[in-house]
């Protein structure tokens, strides 16, 4: 019996899917890029029941590690980790940009284009910045091949770095289904990873006080 896989990504909206041996058994998408904490429980419960299985049947949990705005991203990773604990499943992490890359390559082949240009995948990083990563294509089993990134940059900086002649850009939306497909391909390639650490790419916004004693002068001034 092929393994049941629960796929979770909260790098943009809340998207959850259940796959069995590469076949999609259910998918739930909440598009709004907020309210992840509110949605995640229902999304998982509905995906599991939609697949017609008990939670205990899930053998692998796959989660998108971002990069993404932090607050939402963490909710998906925390949920994936705890679900895996709860059912004794294996836990795997995948770059959310890998799922976008797979969708982009699939879109290109669907339109019959024969371009072999690398694809630049971007995602909203807020604060007028984009997360980005550059992919050359897919492995034989269908896993995106990362050649540069991931990083975070202003759109102008990206334009400067990657000219239109060099790379192709497409707009695709992230889906947990694609995350699951990347996972299946990585399993076959032997590159699937148990690392689920969030990819923040930015430091926490906090500045240590320069001179601790400055504090008193500021408040009394």
């Amino acid at each position: 019996m092929p393994n049941w896989t629960l796929c979770i990504d909260t790098s943009a909206g809340t998207t959850v899917a259940v796959l069995q041996g590469g076949e999609v058994r259910s998918e739930i998408h909440f598009d709004e890029n907020m309210k992840h904490a509110e949605r995640i429980g229902d999304a998982i419960a509905q995906a599991i029941s939609g697949a017609g299985i008990k939670p205990g049947r899930v053998g692998s949990v796959v989660v998108g590690r971002g990069p993404a705005p932090f607050t939402g991203l963490r909710i998906g990773i925390a949920a994936a980790a705890m679900f895996a604990e709860g059912v004794g499943a294996q836990l795997f992490g995948i770059s959310s940009l890998d799922a976008l890359a797979l969708a982009a390559f699939q879109k290109r082949s669907a339109t019959g284009e024969s371009s072999s240009k690398p694809i630049l995948v971007t995602a909203d990083a807020r604060r007028s910045e984009h997360y980005w990563a550059l992919y050359s294509g897919l492995t034989k089993n269908g896993a995106p091949i990362l050649i540069e990134g991931p990083g975070v940059a202003k759109p102008a900086a990206l334009d400067q770095k990657f000219s239109e002649q060099q790379v192709e850009r497409t707009q695709v939306k992230i889906s947990a289904v694609d995350l699951g497909k990347v996972f299946d391909a990585q399993i076959l390639d032997g590159t699937a990873s148990h690392v689920v650490e969030a990819m923040y790419l930015r430091e926490a916004d906090a500045v240590a006080p320069k001179v601790l004693r400055d504090f008193g002068k500021k408040v009394s001034g």
Binding site: P55, A81, M82, V87
Partner: peptide, 10 residues
């Protein structure tokens, strides 16, 4: 997020 997923799982 953690608690909800755990609740669904078990």
């Amino acid at each position: 997020g953690a608690a909800k997923a755990l609740s669904v799982a078990i």
